[in-house]
Amino acid sequence: MVLIAVAHTVLFSLIAPWSSWLAGDLRTGAADSDSMATFWALPGGFVVVLALLGLLVARAGRQGHHVPGYVGWAILAWGAFAVSLIGPSGFLSAIVPAGLLIAANVVAGRHSAGSS
């Protein structure tokens, strides 16, 4: 998830109209639709939250904790919904962290069932 967030930020940062944003165009309404879309793809979008979630999941894993399975299923549903709206895109990459979280939850469930 951290890798996806970083890659997304790097990719969109190259086309972001930073000077326009810093000049206040987003606040004043002077920004065009491309500028607004890029804003929602970068600081206004999911990248910060996705990076934080990825760091939180990594920390939990290092400490031996398991993330609930619903986190993986929610990420998978979110990615699938986005792909259904806009077609094949970077949202397809949601399959990787979702699948890993779901698989880890299944494995953790088998281990805990076997130890009872």
Rank of each mutant, 00 (worst) to 15 (best):
L101T: 01
A37T: 03
L55M: 13
H65C: 07
V47F: 11
W78Q: 15
A16I: 07
A74D: 09
S35R: 06
A74L: 12
A5M: 06
R59W: 15
S93D: 08
S112E: 15
F39P: 00
L50M: 12
A23N: 13
H65R: 15
W21A: 03
V83G: 07
A108Q: 08
A82G: 04
D32S: 07
S33T: 07
S19Y: 07
V2H: 00
L56T: 14
L3K: 06
S19H: 12
V96H: 00
V107C: 06
F81Q: 03
G45C: 05
F12N: 13
A104G: 07
A82E: 13
S35H: 08
H111M: 14
V48C: 04
T9Y: 13
M36N: 10
L11G: 05
G54D: 06
W40M: 11
L85V: 13
L22I: 09
L100N: 09
L14S: 11
A5N: 04
W18E: 03
S93Q: 12
A7K: 04
T9N: 05
A77K: 12
L11Q: 10
G87A: 03
L85E: 15
A94L: 07
I4T: 02
G99V: 02
G90Y: 02
G64E: 02
T28G: 08
A31E: 04
A104Q: 12
L50Y: 10
T38C: 10
L56K: 13
W78F: 14
A80N: 00
G44D: 02
A41F: 05
L50P: 00
V49K: 03
G99N: 00
R110A: 14
P17W: 00
A98G: 00
P88R: 05
L50T: 04
I4V: 05
W40D: 05
W21R: 02
L53W: 11
P43C: 07
I86R: 15
I102E: 01
S13R: 14
P68M: 12
A94F: 13
V10P: 08
A58V: 11
D32K: 01
S93F: 14
A41S: 10
G54A: 12
G99A: 01
F46Y: 09
L53M: 10
H8Q: 14
A51Y: 04
F46R: 01
A82M: 12
S115Y: 06
T28N: 10
A23Y: 07
G99E: 01
L101R: 00
V49N: 07
L76H: 01
L22K: 06
L56V: 13
G90S: 03
T38R: 08
G64F: 05
V71G: 02
V106Y: 14
A5D: 03
R110G: 14
L26E: 08
A58Q: 15
F81T: 10
T9L: 09
P17R: 04
V67E: 01
G90M: 03
A58S: 15
G109C: 05
S20T: 05
S20I: 04
G99Y: 02
N105H: 15
G44N: 06
S115V: 09
A41D: 11
A16W: 01
F12Y: 11
W40Y: 15
D32N: 11
